[in-house]
Computed example of a mutant assay.
Amino acid sequence: MKLLNPIPKPKHKRRVPKRGNATRITQAVRNEVLNRSESRCERCGRTRAYAFEMAHLINASQGGRGDDPANVVLLCGPSVNTGTCHNFADYTAKGREWRRKKHEELKRYYG
């Protein structure tokens, strides 16, 4: 079915961003995290891995911002593989404690 007079999309930006966009990791934060970590896993220090992933310290589902470099770390991954740092941080009690301490450390680092 084809509309005869479709309503054009607005050409302005949203005044209040959608919730999904608030948790999306921005390119500026990605660059800052890569510079801060010197392209190393921030937990184990590994420079070579199958994949490196940006990870929220406060989960996106809990409102963790993607535009705050104190909330994002570079970890070796993928998160679904057992034994990687991203898996450790997301799925273990010790990993959740590590994320909390790392978040406190980065909040002090960024002031």
Rank of each mutant, 00 (worst) to 15 (best):
M1L: 10
M1Q: 10
L3S: 12
L3C: 10
L3G: 10
P6A: 10
K9C: 08
P10R: 13
R14Y: 09
R14D: 08
R14C: 05
V16M: 10
V16C: 06
K18F: 09
K18S: 12
K18R: 13
A22N: 07
A22Q: 14
R24D: 08
I25R: 00
Q27K: 07
Q27D: 13
Q27H: 05
N31L: 11
E32T: 15
V33E: 01
V33P: 04
L34K: 13
L34Q: 09
R36D: 01
S37P: 03
E38S: 10
E38Y: 02
R40Q: 07
C41W: 00
E42M: 13
R43D: 05
C44Q: 05
C44G: 08
G45C: 08
R46A: 15
R46M: 08
T47D: 06
T47F: 07
R48N: 09
Y50E: 15
Y50T: 13
A51H: 01
A51S: 10
A51D: 01
A51Q: 07
F52M: 06
E53M: 01
H56T: 06
H56D: 03
L57N: 11
I58T: 15
Q62K: 14
G63V: 08
R65S: 14
D67E: 12
D68W: 02
N71C: 09
N71R: 07
V72Y: 01
L74N: 07
L75W: 04
L75N: 05
L75Y: 04
G77T: 03
P78S: 03
S79A: 13
T82C: 04
T84G: 05
C85V: 02
D90L: 11
Y91C: 03
T92R: 02
A93W: 06
A93C: 02
R96Q: 15
E97V: 04
R100P: 00
R100Y: 12
K101E: 15
K102A: 07
K102F: 01
H103S: 04
E104A: 15
E105S: 03
R108C: 06
R108A: 15
R108D: 13
Y109D: 06
Y109K: 14
Y110R: 05
G111S: 14
